[in-house]
Amino acid sequence: MGAGHYHLENINSDATGKYEIWRNNLLKKASLASTLTIHASAYRSVISTAIQKGWISEHTPIAQMKRTGAKGRARPAFTREEVNRLLDYLPIFAKGEHSRLAKESRQVCRDYVEILLGTGMRSGIESQHIKWSDISLHIDSVTAVKYLRIGVTGKAGGRYLIAKHNIKTVLERVIAKYSQLNAYSLDRVLELKPNLYLFSLGDDMLPVSFCTTFKHLMTASGLLKGSATGQNRTLYSLRHTFAILELMENRTDLHTLAKQMGTSVGMIERHYSKLTAVMAADRLA
Rank of each mutant, 00 (worst) to 15 (best):
T212A: 14
G230H: 06
Y160L: 10
Y178K: 13
P207A: 02
H216E: 08
N232F: 02
V189Q: 04
I167T: 13
L161H: 01
F210N: 05
M205A: 11
D203H: 13
G222F: 04
K155T: 07
D204R: 07
I162L: 09
Q231C: 03
S185D: 07
S209F: 06
A163G: 12
A163R: 11
P194Y: 01
D204H: 06
T234E: 12
P207S: 03
K193M: 07
A228K: 14
R233Q: 03
P194M: 04
T169W: 04
V208A: 10
A228Q: 14
G226R: 01
A228H: 12
G157W: 02
I150T: 10
I150C: 14
K215C: 05
V152Y: 00
L206D: 03
F214T: 11
T229N: 04
S221L: 10
A228L: 13
F199D: 04
G154Q: 02
I175Q: 06
A220L: 13
V174P: 03
D203G: 06
P194R: 09
N166A: 01
H216G: 06
Y160M: 07
N182S: 11
I175L: 04
V189D: 02
G222D: 07
L171C: 06
E172V: 05
Y197I: 01
T212W: 09
S221W: 08
G226V: 00
M205V: 14
Y197F: 15
E191A: 08
L201E: 03
I162Q: 11
T213W: 04
R159N: 03
H165R: 15
E172D: 12
L192I: 15
G202F: 00
A156V: 10
H165T: 15
A183C: 07
V174W: 02
K155Q: 09
T169I: 09
G158F: 02
K193R: 15
K215Y: 09
R149P: 02
L198I: 09
L171I: 04
G222S: 06
G230M: 03
K193C: 09
L224A: 12
D187E: 15
L217N: 12
I167D: 01
D203N: 15
T169Y: 07
D204W: 03
M205S: 10
G154V: 01
I175G: 06
I162C: 09
K164S: 14
K193F: 00
Y197R: 13
N182M: 05
A163V: 05
R233W: 00
T234Q: 10
G158K: 12
G158M: 03
G158I: 00
G230N: 06
L217I: 11
T219V: 15
G158N: 08
A176W: 05
L161E: 01
L224P: 07
I167M: 10
L196P: 09
K177P: 03
K168S: 11
L217T: 08
A176C: 05
S221P: 10
N195V: 05
G158A: 11
G151Y: 12
D204N: 15
K215I: 05
T234C: 11
K225I: 10
L198A: 02
I175H: 07
Q180F: 08
D204S: 08
